[in-house]
């Protein structure tokens, strides 16, 4: 029987490893990264995955080996070692070293994400979250938020590509979360507070997702970040500013 059980555990380990090997092939893995945060975050995810994989294979390998070897149920003598300081030292110090190394390597990344506050001044737009809507406020012709010439866009925030973009996140009711999977960027939006996020992104259209439970409609609180090349972005802003002063119909589609 011990062989059966050893094989069952080996099958489990193989299943786990295989799932991580095959998932990217099926697309059940990181979406393509499109912001300046993506390469380092993805690298970190992979590095940690390799560390996990190494520990996993080692531990499960030993487990399977022991089940295979020690499972005879006989009455033979046991190893009477109840401690082994050298061994204990190894399995404490080696993982500790790896963990400390991991903790330290990601500090730079965190610093780049959180401590490199871009210049002051108005953000490109204010992102207002409410149950279950994204509503973006752009400063309008006067470049100032909170004035009557601000313009609103439902659902979609439009930003320039290739430069650092800052958005100010506001909530009208409960906690929401600004999550753009392609940017590897997530930030909770807390009512009563104005929290800024910044990123540098490539041109394209990206899903904006609410990542914090905000009520029954949480699942459909969908938005979009449209990143335009800088010239197109300028033209877009001009057009939107002008539209404020006209009666023309717009659908944005």
């Amino acid at each position: 029987m011990r062989r059966v059980w050893a094989l069952l555990f080996a099958a489990f380990a193989a299943l786990v490893v295989a799932s991580f090997v095959h998932a990217p092939e099926r697309g059940w893995w990181l979406p393509e990264g499109k912001s300046s945060f993506a390469p380092s975050t993805d690298a970190l995810i992979r590095t940690i995955l390799w560390v996990m994989g190494a520990f996993f294979v080692l531990t499960l390998g030993l487990l399977v080996l022991f089940i295979w070897r020690q499972g005879d149920g006989s009455n033979a003598a046991r190893s009477d070692k109840s401690s082994d300081h050298r061994l204990e030292l190894i399995w404490t110090v080696v993982p500790a070293g790896v963990l400390v190394w991991l903790a330290l390597t990601q500090m730079d990344e965190w610093k780049a994400m959180k401590f490199s506050t871009p210049g002051a001044g108005e953000p490109i737009a204010e992102v207002w979250a409410s149950q279950f809507d994204w509503r973006m406020r752009h400063p309008g012709a006067d470049g100032r938020l909170g004035s009557a010439d601000d313009w609103e866009s439902p659902y979609e925030v439009v930003v320039p590509a290739g430069e650092e973009v800052r958005l100010r996140l506001r909530s009208r009711d409960v906690i929401h979360s600004f999550f753009v999977p392609a940017f590897r960027l997530k930030q909770d939006i807390v009512p009563g507070r104005a929290i800024s996020v910044w990123f540098t992104a490539e041109a394209g259209e990206y899903d904006l997702v609410c990542a914090e439970l905000c009520g029954w409609g949480h699942y459909k609180m969908a938005g979009r970040v449209r990143v335009l090349p800088p010239e197109e972005y300028q033209a877009f802003v001009q057009r939107q500013n002008a539209l404020q002063l006209s009666g023309a119909e717009v659908s944005g589609r």
Binding site: T41, L44, M52, F55, L63, F179
Partner: peptide
């Protein structure tokens, strides 16, 4: 032992602040 190891190791992603920004609430 086998499952605790698996779950414990996948927790490593969550310890990392930059990775957690991405995987939080997923």
């Amino acid at each position: 032992v086998a499952l605790f190891v698996t779950g414990g190791l996948s927790g490593l992603w969550l310890t990392s602040t930059p990775v957690d920004v991405y995987v939080h609430d997923t």
